[in-house]
C-alpha cells in the first residue's frame, strides 16, 4: 500500500484527488494539508511514501515544501500537481527533488499513472517539458555539444523535429500518417534513448544544458 500525503489549498480539489486516489487498490491518502508548512508538520508526524503538492499555496509554496521535504525525508517521493503549465516550473520542481509534474487539467488522466511512476523513481514528464528538453537536445546536437548519443532511428528523428517545432502528438500523427499511439511510443522511446527516463540522469542533463541551475 502506497501511503500518500496531499497538499492543496483548495478543499474541493483535495476532496477530488483523494477520492480518485483512494479508489485505486494500492493507493491510500493518509493526510491532507492546506499549505506547505502544514504538509511539513504532517510529514514529520507520520512520514508518507509519496507527497502530492500543489505549487501555489499560501504561506509556503509547494516548491519550497518539496525542497524541505526532500532534505528531511530523502526516501520520500514527491509529485507536483499544479495549474501552471510551464516547463520552467517543471525544471524547478526537478531541482528541488520532485519526481514528477502533473497538470491539473490532466489530473483525471495522468495522476494515478504519475503516482506509480514516482514510486518506481521514474520522472513523470509533462508534455511542455518534454518539448523543451527535445528542443534543447536538437540545439545541442546542432552546435556539437556533448549529448548522450544513442542511435536514434530515422523515424524517431522526424518525430523529434516535429516535437521541437511545437506540434502536438495529434498533429504529428496526421503529418506522418501514423496513429497517435505510435507517436506516443516513438516519443517515449526517444526519451528513454536520450536518458530522460531516469530521474537522476534527467536532472544532470537539465543542469548541464543550463535549463536549471545546480
Amino acid at each position: 500500500m502506497i501511503r500518500i500525503l496531499l497538499a492543496d489549498d483548495h478543499a474541493l480539489v483535495r476532496r477530488g484527488v483523494r477520492l480518485i486516489l483512494d479508489s485505486e487498490p494500492d493507493l491510500e491518502v493518509i493526510g491532507e494539508a492546506a499549505d506547505g508548512s502544514e504538509a511539513l508538520a504532517l510529514a514529520a508526524a507520520d512520514p508518507p511514501d509519496l507527497a502530492v503538492l500543489d505549487i501555489a499555496m499560501p504561506r509556503m509554496t509547494g516548491l519550497q515544501a518539496a525542497r524541505e521535504l526532500s532534505r528531511s525525508h530523502p526516501d520520500l517521493r514527491i509529485l507536483i500537481l499544479t495549474m501552471y503549465d510551464n516547463e520552467q516550473f517543471f525544471f524547478e520542481a526537478l531541482r528541488v527533488g520532485a519526481a514528477g509534474y502533473v497538470l491539473k487539467s490532466a489530473a483525471d488522466r495522468d495522476l494515478v499513472e504519475a503516482c506509480h511512476a514516482a514510486m518506481r523513481d521514474e520522472p513523470f514528464l509533462y508534455p511542455g517539458a518534454e518539448t523543451a528538453l527535445i528542443r534543447e537536445y536538437l540545439e545541442r546536437a546542432r552546435t556539437g555539444a556533448d549529448i548522450p548519443d544513442r542511435a536514434v532511428t530515422e523515424r524517431e528523428e522526424e518525430v523529434l523535429k516535429l516535437v521541437a517545432e511545437g506540434h502536438s502528438t495529434k498533429d504529428i500523427a496526421e503529418l506522418l500518417y501514423i496513429s497517435v499511439k505510435t507517436v506516443e511510443r516513438h516519443r517515449s522511446n526517444i526519451l528513454a534513448k536520450l536518458g530522460l527516463k531516469d530521474r537522476q540522469e534527467l536532472t544532470r542533463y537539465a543542469i548541464r544544458a543550463g535549463l536549471i541551475e545546480p
Binding site: 474541493l12 480539489v13 476532496r15 477530488g16 495549474m83 487539467s105 489530473a107 483525471d108
Partner: peptide, 8 residues
Amino acid sequence: QTLTAVLL
C-alpha cells in the same frame, strides 16, 4: 480550481 474539482 473549481473546474479541476469538476474534472476529478
